[in-house]
Design a protein around this nucleic acid. Structure first.
Length: 253
DNA sequence: CACCAGGTGGAAC
DNA sequence: GTTCCACATGGT
């Protein structure tokens, strides 16, 4: 049994965050909450010794225990969990996560990163007020495509108080989902991603095309929320990584 | 030049 | 209820 350890590459480059880059020497650099970080896999002390980053990387959650619990749920999940060691669920900013996953729809990771990079313009992720200031034509110019009005609507609703992100933290997942879905361009999948990655609701199980395929092929079409319960979101990340990196390659389908 | 990308809204059955 | 399709953009 290998010792468990945060895996930066798997955690930062698996589609839950879009603002981290790795330089040739292996250093991961990113920004969150107005702070910047540079950290390498061989020395995680910059994460361990700073309260903000410790929380951001979710270092105080019992991932070993969670992995054991998930592995006990089924042989397939046990394989996926064993293969996906080191993936953790980040504590990202709710607003940034919400916008990021609106932008992610019908889009690819590379372009998502480019759009978000241009939105941030080297600094912090724009506030709702700054998004409103940019305006729909400005967002279109940045390359959001048809998602421009979606992000603008999110900004408008948060700025005006129609959506209260702090209050959403207090709602249960079905209520929070319904609240988020009042935003144009937010459906079940985007809401689920925002809640999992931005609000740390580990029971959320984002169903994208890949997960539909995984659940059909490996779990006889069962519902991941029923199978994995309060750890469904973590299970989803393991299965996503396992399926794309191993299962569908070995089986060449 | 077609087709795709970790979807969604809306119309048409 | 379900099934289609357009949606803007850059990459194969």
């Amino acid at each position: 049994m290998m010792e468990y350890r945060l895996d930066l590459a798997r955690t930062l480059d698996c589609g839950q965050a879009f603002r981290w880059t790795q330089s040739e020497d292996g250093l991961w650099q990113g920004t969150a909450g107005g702070k910047t970080l540079g950290v390498s896999q061989h020395d995680l002390s910059p994460v361990m010794e700073d309260a903000f980053w410790r929380n951001y990387f979710d270092m105080d959650f019992d991932y070993e225990g969670a992995r054991e619990a998930l592995a006990a749920s089924s042989p397939v999940m046990a394989k996926a969990a064993a293969f996906s060691s080191g993936i953790q669920i980040l504590n990202q900013d709710p607003w940034e996560a919400l916008c990021s996953f609106i932008i992610s729809q019908n889009n690819n990771i590379k372009r998502i990163k480019g759009i978000i990079s241009r939105l941030c313009c080297g600094g912090c992720f724009p506030t709702p007020e700054q998004i409103i200031e940019i305006g729909v034509p400005g967002l279109r110019a940045i390359g959001l495509g048809f998602r421009d009005s979606y992000v603008y609507d999110a900004a408008f609703r948060v700025h005006s108080g129609l959506i209260d992100l702090d209050q959403i933290k207090t709602l249960d997942v079905p209520e929070a989902t319904e609240a988020l879905k009042t935003i144009r361009g937010v459906g079940d999948k985007v809401a689920s991603c925002a809640l999992l990655y931005g609000f740390h609701r580990l029971e959320c199980f984002p169903m994208d095309v890949w997960m539909k395929r995984v659940m059909a092929d490996l779990f006889d079409g069962m519902d991941g929320r029923d199978l994995f319960g309060p750890l469904a979101g973590l299970a989803q990340q393991y299965l996503f990584f396992y399926a794309r990196e191993l299962y569908y390659k070995e089986n060449s389908i």
